[in-house]
Amino acid sequence: MSAPVLPVVVDGVTHHYGSKLALDKMSWSAPEGAITCVLGPNGAGKTTIMEMAEGLRRPESGAVRVLDTDPWGANAAHRRRVGVMLQDGGLPGSVKPLRLLQHIARLYDATDQFPALVEELGIEEFGHTAVRRLSGGQRQRVALAAALIGRPEVVFLDEPSAGLDPHARLDVWDLVRRTRDRGCCVVVTTHSFDEADRLADRVIIVAAGSVAAEGSVAEVSGADGLEDSYFSLTRAAKKSEPRK
């Protein structure tokens, strides 16, 4: 009997922006029913590889598979199974959150999720205010709801708790954990050790376009703790550039 296919597989992906090497034979995977945190400094390639997994960018070489499908040009049935929270939110400024979320729920054929998510994320209180008038934290909550509204099998969350106050952050983490507990493969990018430490089942540290370490939080942290391990790994990668 063959081993089950992991929901997200990144296999030897290399990509350039002009002459700058953004991803250098990057490989990692994310299992179902687990939260995988991709941790790395700015410019390490986190957003680039997330965009490839979301179907927004095509890798130069190597392969990305999501639910055993190439996400680039994948059909609507595939997109129906995948949730995405973009780093820049992707929310139209002039639209009110409740109307936007209702529309996205209809696109996913998942209007039954809508009331519970609105309540869990406290969106009702600003649901009739145009997105452009919301605080950064309120927008984050709307973007997270948009990613989860279709009950996806895989969800990509790009810095889901950035800009949130401590209480809202705990609420978001609880929601992400519940999403994991129903079997979803959750992939989170973050700069925050605290977030990775508290949330992750698996951590992938990326630096200079490659994976510097991966494993459980305990495995990656070692004896020095996650923060010290992160700095030693990412500084070592930075010193080993030039990146051509």
């Binding site: 179907g55 609507a76 997109r79 129906r80 995948v82 973009l86 929310l91 696109l107 996913y108 279709g150």
Partner: peptide, 8 residues
């Protein structure tokens, strides 16, 4: 980009 990755 966001609407492009939904089923739409």
């Amino acid at each position: 980009r966001l609407l492009g990755v939904t089923p739409l």
